[in-house]
Amino acid sequence: MSPYAMTRTLPEDATGAALRADVLHGLTGSPKTLPPKWFYDAHGSDLFDEITTLPEYYPTRAEREILVARATEIAAATGARTLVELGSGSSDKTRHLLDAFPELTTYIPVDVSESALRGAAKLLLAEHPALDIHALVADFTRALVLPTTPGPRLVAFLGGTIGNLLPEERAEFLTSVRGLLSPGDFFLLGTDLVKDEATLVAAYDDRAGVTAAFNKNVLTVVNRELDADFDLGAFDHVAVWDPEREWIEMRLRSTVAQTVKVPALDLAVNFAAGETLRTEVSAKFRREGVQAELAAAGLELVRWWPDSEGRFTLSLSSVPAA
């Protein structure tokens, strides 16, 4: 294998087609919704990077603490020679793992953004010139076909992103991950934990208003890509804790009665004053719940590493012995 290769499994217009489908489905549903993946154009990614540095937003710091403290232990427990990272983005956190895995030969970052994959690969190859990188331009929520690489494999899904999936979506996703694993392979999962409501809400509604700008950026994306006429000033950012479902919901609340036009979809959408548009669900977890969801997908929890304050955890699971 050459030091760097890229495989595209998404059609060239896959992103545009998915956006059109998601906006049509979400804005004609009840309640109205938009998926959180559309936050992340270049500006949205910059805003999220800023969010991760805010004092209220603990998940990134907590996960990095675990990675720094446990990377060597993760390497010893898995003996991985191939690391597969789902939703890899800039691969920033990956460095903590790459530096700790003495047997690692291959890294497979998976992301929908080809530019993010190329940028990350350039930096990683400068730091690890002997590493084989095979990037996949793909949607990790759909069935993946991985290149043939040395085992054991460690599939990593970091950042607590699994919390953005609804329960039925999580079940489908975890089952697909199980399908990528052979006996002796492992799955490393980042999950944000249930904690007091004030801490959770503050993490998604910071005093500086960065998360509010990030939330409204989804409207900017729809305006730009679908020629819509959302007035960002006519929507307020809202973050609420749902204690029954144990998740944070981010919403945009219409401040007035209004009609939004989306010409690319030949669509007019009426909003009542006070009506909300849900843009993100961020589920929080307990150990017993994570273990049960993994088991339902055919995976066995073997390690549980919380951060020092018990806010966030990395878990390691494997295919049970026959």
Rank of each mutant, 00 (worst) to 15 (best):
D132K: 13
D132C: 13
D132N: 14
D132E: 15
I133P: 06
H134N: 07
A135M: 09
L136E: 06
L136K: 10
A138W: 11
A138T: 11
D139V: 11
F140I: 00
R142C: 05
R142S: 14
R142M: 07
R142N: 07
A143K: 15
V145G: 11
V145N: 13
L146K: 09
L146R: 10
P147R: 11
P147V: 09
T148R: 13
T148K: 13
T148M: 00
T148C: 01
T148L: 03
T148A: 15
T148V: 14
T148S: 14
T149V: 14
T149H: 02
P150H: 12
P150L: 08
P150Y: 09
P150A: 10
G151W: 05
G151P: 07
G151N: 09
G151H: 10
G151M: 08
P152Y: 10
P152L: 10
P152C: 09
P152V: 11
R153T: 15
V155D: 04
V155M: 06
A156M: 03
F157K: 02
F157R: 01
F157T: 07
F157I: 06
L158T: 03
L158Q: 02
L158C: 02
L158R: 03
G159M: 01
G159P: 02
G160H: 01
T161Q: 01
T161W: 01
T161K: 05
T161S: 15
G163T: 03
G163P: 03
N164E: 03
N164A: 07
N164W: 04
L165K: 08
L165N: 09
L165W: 06
E168H: 14
E168W: 07
E169L: 07
R170K: 10
R170E: 01
A171H: 09
F173G: 04
F173M: 07
F173C: 05
F173L: 14
L174V: 04
L174E: 01
L174F: 14
T175L: 07
T175P: 00
T175Y: 00
T175W: 02
S176G: 15
S176T: 10
S176C: 01
V177P: 03
V177L: 01
R178W: 00
R178V: 00
R178Q: 09
G179R: 11
G179V: 04
G179Q: 09
L180N: 05
L180H: 03
L180I: 04
L181G: 08
L181H: 07
L181T: 05
S182L: 13
S182T: 12
P183S: 12
G184L: 11
G184E: 08
G184V: 11
G184P: 10
D185K: 07
D185H: 07
D185I: 09
F186P: 00
L188S: 05
L188V: 02
G190N: 03
T191I: 04
T191E: 04
D192A: 02
L193D: 04
L193N: 05
L193F: 00
L193T: 04
V194D: 05
V194F: 04
V194T: 12
V194Y: 00
K195Q: 12
K195I: 05
K195W: 03
K195A: 06
D196N: 15
D196S: 13
D196F: 02
E197V: 14
E197T: 14
E197D: 08
E197S: 06
A198E: 15
T199E: 13
T199S: 15
L200P: 04
L200D: 03
L200G: 07
V201W: 03
V201G: 01
